[in-house]
Design a protein around this nucleic acid. Structure first.
Lengths: 148, 148
DNA sequence: AAACAATATTTGTATGTACAAATGTATGGT
DNA sequence: ACCATACATTTGTACATACAAATATTGTTT
């Protein structure tokens, strides 16, 4: 993923903005590759992410603000994202008995099933993206990203 | 930018997906900070990017496919993005005489003016984001990102 | 208990983006 | 010149996202 080639420029870009462009380019690639892996399942990366969070709850219901906190890319409208999963019957939604303002979202068996299929495809895509980096390089990269 | 904290999890995430999540988190932050710097100017990061490409043309017009090639985040609809810049009178658009399929887009003096104001704000934001990384670390990071 | 503020979610609306089909123009073969 | 094909952009439509205002419920203060 060469920056100059990707944005077809011959000019030399200062180190700071170049780094930020670089991160965006890599992110776009990650997003695209994983998005494509999910396409056959008719689900977006955001929706997949929510399903994974729900699985991590181990049966315990999650409410919308919890989901939002745990999402990689926070969004302003988790309600409508859950609507989509509800339409696919991958989750169920009910009003919390102890606090009727809250809502309880649980992944369904159908959702769990779909998720395990998707997970395999996503894991493959993920490993493919990082295939040119060894363990030490990945650790180094994580360390540098911590500085942001 | 700690991953586990950002997505409120205590579970340990395997190195490969953790790296990808990390990149997304940093990207989101970059996007947010620069987006905020541009907000007072009423322009999106994508539009700003196009203005910069046009300035780089040094008077030479660019057509839509050229813009698309050079954009950091490629998009399917450059026409409507240019419409927005046209409405602000930051660019002009005319049909290419030698090939009437093509369109010639040029940045206007007003656009140049606006751009130089924005550039200052964006450069500040950019430097602020990378302030915890020194030159060597930035170079190392770029080198690792090349491997994607 | 009534009034007010705080919390959690939903809804409305504007804007942004993705993808496919449509339009208009140019090019090469016959 | 005619036709098929390729090219560059535009348009239509569906979907995604951002932000603010509205709704419903709970907690707190007097």
């Amino acid at each position: 993923m060469n920056v100059e080639e990707a944005i077809k420029t011959t000019k030399q870009i200062p180190l700071e903005p170049r780094t930020l462009i670089h991160i965006t380019l890599v992110h776009n690639k990650v997003y695209e590759v994983i998005g494509n892996a999910l396409k056959p399942f008719g689900i977006s990366l955001q929706q997949f992410n929510v399903l994974r969070i729900l699985r991590g709850q181990q049966g315990q219901p999650a409410n919308l603000s919890t989901l939002n906190e745990r999402m990689v890319t926070k969004m302003s409208n988790t309600t409508r994202l859950v609507d989509k999963l509800l339409a696919k019957e991958y989750v169920s939604r009910s009003i919390c008995a102890s606090n009727r303002r809250k809502v309880e979202i649980v992944i369904t068996p159908l959702g769990m099933d779909a998720l395990s299929n998707m997970s395999k495809a996503v894991a493959e895509a993920e490993n493919n993206i990082v295939k040119n980096l060894n363990k030490q390089e990945l650790e180094q990269l994580n360390h540098l990203l911590d500085k942001f």
